[in-house]
Amino acid sequence: MSRRAPKGEYIETDTGNKVARKAILVGTQNITLGGKTVIQPEVMIRGDLSRSSASSGGSGSGNNTAISIGRYCFFSRGCCLRPPGRFYKGHFTHLPLRMGDHVFVGQNSVVQAATIGSHVHIGEGVVIGEMATIKDYTRILDGTVVPPYMTIPSFSIVAGRPARVIGEVPEGGHEAFELRELYKTVGNNVQPAPA
């Protein structure tokens, strides 16, 4: 994190990421952002829970990425991303959380998935259990609880506690997942929306 005098609410990196100063990023050396990603205030990302094979230190240049995020992702206020933990060959270890492009995570959602594809919309107050896999073009409605290890196929609409596939994304509904416009609406010097 830069130590410049506070200027705006967000820190904007060269690759276009907008990270709120009030976001809580733990273990930043293990977090990879693809670029053009927005992290709003009060978001918590646990990069410190990295894969344990790389000894106790965790620092340095090893490939112990805990969370890797694609481009144009949007993390709303109060959500939490943490790598899933599981038993592998008799030992407990955390596995990396991988996320594609154009992933939206709503307010106060907790994501502990293993893999999230591209163009995924996660609503408010959603809990995604450990090691879940979510494929491309999926919409998860508000308040859903996705159980651990669940796999959600592409183009599904998911809701409920526990989560169930309740429908399919209609044909032509794919543009709704684009987050390029949403990206432009936050930041320190927001451009006015095109007329």
Partner: peptide, 14 residues
């Protein structure tokens, strides 16, 4: 038993 193992793991990270 799993909890105990998880704790040993977390102690190295936090």
């Amino acid at each position: 038993k799993a909890q105990a193992q998880q704790i040993t793991n977390l102690r190295t990270k936090i």
